[in-house]
Amino acid sequence: MAFTILQQVVNGVALGMLLALMAVGLTVVLGLMRVINMAHGALYTLGAYTVVTTFDRWGFLPSLLAAPIAVGVIGLVLEGVLIRPIYQRDPLHTLLLTFGLALIAEDLVRIVWGDAPYPMSPPELLSGILLLGDLPFSKYRLFVIVVSAALMLLTWMFLARTQLGRTVLAGTFDREMVRVLGIRINLLFTLVFGLGAALAGLAGALASPIRGVFPGMGSSIIMPSFVVVIIGGMGSFGGALIGGLSVGIIISLAVEFFPAASDVVVFVLLALVLLVRPRGLFGVEGLLSR
C-alpha cells in the first residue's frame, strides 16, 4: 500500500510540474501586467501541435525544443500587436481579448490539423518503465519531472539572480515605482509575456504523449492552471510551484482513495485556501485592486 502511495505521489508530481509550468507564465503575467491571460491554454495547445508537426521529420527531442521557441515567438507577437494597445483600459478588456483569442486559436487548430486527436507516444528511449527496487515508474513521467524541474530552476534563477529578472519581480510588486526609476517597462512586458508563452508551449509539448493531442486540450488545462495560480497566490513564482505540486499530488491520491471525487477535490482545496487565506499561499494582498 505504501508503495502504491509513493507511486501515486511521483505520478502526481509529474502532473503538478506541468501545471506549475503553466501557472508560472500565468502568474507572472498577471502580477506584472495585470493581464488575465485566457489564451494561455491555446499556447499550450500550439506547443503540442508543434511537436506533432515536426515529430516525423526531426524526432522527439528537437521537436521538444522547437515548441517553446515557436510558441514564444507567437507570444511576443500577440503581446506586441494585440495586447499592448489596450493596457491602459480596464483589465476586463484584456480578459475579453484573450478569451476571444483562445476561441479563435482552437478553431484555427481544427481547420489546420483537423478535429481528430493525434496519436502521440513517448520516444522509444523514454517509453516503458524504470524499476527502482521493486517499484515501477514510467520513464517518460520521470523525464517530465526532471525537465520541468530544470526549467523551473532556470526560470527562478533568471528572476532572482539577474538584473533583468529582479526588475521583473520588482515590477510585480510595484510597477509604478519601476517606471518611476526610469526602466522601460513595456519592453519588460513583452519579454515576460514571451517567456510565459514559451513555458506554456513547452508544457503542451511535454504533455502531448501523456494527455493526448486534440483541439480542446488547452481549455481542459486552463481551469486547473488558474486554480493553481489562485492557490499559490497571484504573482508568486514559489506559489505556482507549490500550488502545482499540491494540485497534482491531490488529484493522484484522490483517484487512489476517492475516485468519484477526483474531479471535485481540486475545487475543494481551492475553496479551503480561499476561506483560510484569500490571497493564496504566497500571494500579495489585494493585487488586482491596486
Binding site: I210, V255, P259
Partner: peptide
Amino acid sequence: NDLFPLGTSDFSSYLIKVRG
C-alpha cells in the same frame, strides 16, 4: 471498478491503483 469521466486523457493514477 473505477468510473472515470468521459474524455479522460490521463489514466496514470487509475493504472497505478490497478497495479496495487
